[in-house]
């Protein structure tokens, strides 16, 4: 996709996300400034070292049968930045995400978060250490209310122990504090009116918002968003973008997988490109858009327009079937 087509899209997110949006008008917020400055001296090559990496991965490999889905030699993610992970379909982005967050086990490789190794750490412990993810296909808990969804995210709850659960006085005050925090977050994400609705009754975009808000309840240092824009109606896109930027303002690091190049260019400080399981390029968004290898990977592979959920499903299905066939041989 040619870069000049969407020159105006930089002015997004103004109407949303409270303080973050206001700060955005100045286009360069303190956090963004800091992230860009830190990344300014980084060489735009695959596996480039960063001044203050929060996440470092080495030799992470995942094979399905004979097919190597992920083979990432080295990457680092700069603390406090918004980093995009892009690539054509089947590039292994989501699989890599699953590996990093403990939802899948690699055949090989090490990776660390805040200097602590995460290899072999189960997914729930990864979340507790401060790296929380969302899912490509939203996992709102449909038959629970929005508030229950939110409260589930709170950590260290006394009432989640079997024995203390039976005695409400032990956890009531904590529950109240959590509820207040959840209400603040819901207000920020403009979901406060939905508080007592079942999550299953909400639109796709609202569910994405809920999932993000719920992830924040965990109090993460790093948020991993798997295609935050997939299946979201365009009216909500701007709002979502604003919220992602707001995460950085709040001092969090964001790594997200995305197809939508506009979004990538608009909000990311740094872009990592994957193709066929490997990191093929890295750099600031504008450089990446012009990078030959990247354009080849995209044009040579699949189109880069946002996919509908059905298309997405069919492609995932196709990919998986391919893997399976590989598996059988």
């Amino acid at each position: 996709m040619p870069a000049d087509q969407h020159a105006t899209s930089a002015e997004v997110g103004e109407t949303t996300a409270g303080g973050a949006a206001t700060a955005d008008r100045a286009s360069l917020t303190p956090a963004k400034d800091r992230a860009l400055k830190a990344l300014a001296g980084v060489e735009p090559v695959p596996g480039a070292p960063k001044p203050d990496p929060i996440l470092v991965a080495d030799g992470v490999t995942r094979r399905f049968g004979g097919l190597t889905a992920v083979e990432v030699a080295h990457i680092e993610v700069q603390r406090g930045s918004i980093t995009a992970l892009i690539g054509p379909n089947g590039a292994g982005k989501s699989t890599f995400f699953n590996l990093l967050t403990g939802f899948d086990r690699p055949d090989d490789g090490t990776w660390s978060f805040n200097g602590q190794s995460l290899a072999g750490v189960p997914s729930h412990k990864v979340a507790r250490r401060g790296m929380v993810r969302t899912f490509q296909l939203t996992k709102a808990l449909s038959r629970m209310t929005v508030m229950q969804n939110m409260l589930l995210g709170a950590t260290g709850q006394k009432g989640e122990g079997f024995l203390s659960a039976i005695f409400p006085p032990l956890w009531r005050s904590q529950e109240k504090a959590n509820t207040e925090r959840a209400e603040e977050l819901l207000a920020r994400f403009k979901l406060d009116k939905k508080r007592d609705d079942f999550a299953g009754t909400m639109s796709g975009g609202q569910r994405k918002l809920l999932e993000m808000a719920r992830a924040l309840m965990v109090g993460p240092e790093m948020v991993m968003l798997d295609e935050p824009m997939a299946g979201v109606n365009p009216a909500l896109t701007q709002s979502l973008l604003g919220h992602v930027k707001a995460l950085r303002e709040d001092g969090m690091t964001v790594l997200f997988v995305e197809h939508d190049m506009d979004m990538v260019r608009d909000i990311s400080d740094w872009v990592i490109v994957m193709a066929q399981g490997k990191v093929i390029a890295e750099g600031p968004p504008h450089d990446i858009m012009a990078n030959e290898a990247v354009i080849d990977a995209y044009l040579g592979g699949h189109h880069d327009a946002p996919l509908t959920e059905a298309e997405e499903q069919a492609q995932i299905a196709a990919g998986e079937a391919e893997l399976r066939r590989e598996d059988h041989t």
Partner: peptide, 17 residues
């Protein structure tokens, strides 16, 4: 609440620690 959430989607519950 955690139990009911597991019934709905256990991966989501995992992702919340």
């Amino acid at each position: 609440r955690v139990l009911k959430a597991i019934r709905e989607d256990e991966d989501a519950v995992r992702s919340l620690g």
